[in-house]
Simulated scan of single mutants.
Amino acid sequence: MIPAIETRKLHKRYGTRTAVQELDLRVERGTVFGLIGPNGAGKTTTLRILLDVIRPTAGETRVLGEDPRTAGPALRRRIGFVPGELRLEGRIRAGRLLRHYADISGPVAPGAIEHLAERLGLDLSRPVRSLSKGNKQKLGLVQAFMHRPELLVLDEPTSGLDPLVQREFLSLVREARDSGQTVLLSSHVLSEIQQAADSVAVLSSGAIVAEGDVASLRLGAVRRVRAGLLSADAIDVEARLRRTGDLGDLEVTSAGDVVRVAGTVQGSIDAFVKALAEFQVLDLAVEEPDLEESVLRLYGEPAEQEVARA
């Protein structure tokens, strides 16, 4: 079967700066594919090339079996797109704007707009210019999903959304996949990718540094931890924690009767928690890692990998 998206040796350069380099990407139909990486990794540039918003410097691109540079509006009607920077203004009401988009994008089932708006909590009667960032993002999501496109290209789609709406969005993504649609999801939120994606590619400095299923890439293997311990000796605490193994940036400070611990844990957190349990724990926070920290710690910069392979 022809893949939904395929790129070969895709390259994009702005003057002396390379945004995307030698990118080979394949997204199978009926799957959710996550494209992740720190800001500036080349995610948005890649998506814009796929949609023919910008042209590549070199390389080949196929979207739904066609070259986006020549396929024109007919191909774009088969795609739902949410840009990373969604700019919506004007006095027009949200519902009327969506009906206008429906006339452009193709057939939209009766009631589809209203159904999606209700699920996401979007008031269709409000003027677009009065909507908050989060509500404008909801409007963008409705216009992307409403005509049930073959391919959804979503660039940071949950920006500005509250957790409940983010959960509903992930349900929409799973439903789209189950109905045979393909989703290309670009994000810097690890939990979003972990919950939704079947496969993922990690970008760093415009190149893929890792690719595969979510579990095999160990994307959650680095966690940031903070804890407060009562009536403990800071030197003793630090010594015991360091014996647990994969700790990074460990900082142990003392303020009165409380010892504060902060750092990162790579791999299993079990040994770290058991070491803390030897003391009286006042508080404990385990945070989702910063994506840039995780990507670079686990996979390194492309240049570093080249050195390692040499």
Rank of each mutant, 00 (worst) to 15 (best):
R119M: 10
L131W: 12
N135F: 11
K136I: 06
P107E: 12
L120V: 12
L124I: 14
G134F: 05
V153R: 03
G121L: 08
H115N: 12
S132A: 02
P110E: 11
V128G: 04
R126C: 03
L120S: 07
L152S: 04
P149Y: 10
V142F: 00
S105N: 09
P149R: 12
Q137C: 05
S132D: 04
V142H: 00
E114D: 13
L131Q: 12
L152T: 11
G134K: 03
K133C: 03
K138Y: 13
V128S: 05
P149W: 13
Y101Q: 08
R126L: 15
A112K: 12
L131K: 14
A112M: 06
F145C: 10
G134Q: 05
L131S: 10
D103C: 10
V153T: 09
L116R: 04
R129N: 11
A117C: 07
L124S: 07
P127A: 08
E150I: 01
E150W: 03
H147T: 11
L154Y: 09
Y101F: 15
D103E: 15
P107I: 00
V153Y: 06
A102L: 11
V153Q: 06
G111Q: 11
L151E: 08
L141E: 03
G106P: 09
K136E: 00
L122D: 09
I104T: 09
E150M: 06
L141R: 01
E114M: 03
D103W: 02
G134E: 06
K136W: 03
L152A: 07
D123W: 01
G121N: 03
L141F: 02
A117K: 01
I113G: 02
Q143E: 03
